[in-house]
């Protein structure tokens, strides 16, 4: 985790995007961001990859079935295999994030 601990929420992001698109109604920007995130969730839920050039790609990673244990009873339970979302940052995102970090270290 970075030491600054700043965070941005979905509603703050919507306000920011809206401020950059002043010709669009706020509710249209809000609906667009929600639609976009829903479409990304739908893609992953149906096993489809997402490739956003300059940002990164999302794919599914498979977790094989395993034997788990009920922590209360100690009993073994067979857990089925499952898929989990995985994000791989793209080149531009990696470089921009790292470059500004390295520059901030040099200023210290």
């Amino acid at each position: 985790m970075s030491d600054e601990n700043k965070a941005m929420t979905k509603s703050e992001l919507i306000e920011l995007v809206s401020s950059k698109q002043p010709h669009l109604a706020f509710k249209d920007v809000e609906l667009s961001v929600k639609t976009l995130l829903e479409q990304m969730s739908e893609a992953l839920s149906s096993g489809e990859r997402i490739e956003i050039r300059g940002f990164g790609s999302f794919s599914l990673h498979h977790r094989p079935p395993r034997i788990g244990r009920n922590p209360k009873t100690g009993e073994s339970v067979a857990l089925p295999g499952k898929y989990v979302p995985h994000f791989k940052p793209g080149k531009e995102l990696r470089e921009r994030v790292n470059q500004s970090y390295v520059e901030s270290l040099q200023k210290k």
């Binding site: 970075s2 941005m8 929420t9 979905k10 992001l13 994030v97 500004s100």
Partner: peptide, 11 residues
């Protein structure tokens, strides 16, 4: 990208 570049986590 701008937020992450600026050290901001996104939720």
């Amino acid at each position: 990208r701008i937020a992450l570049e600026d050290g901001t986590q996104i939720k």
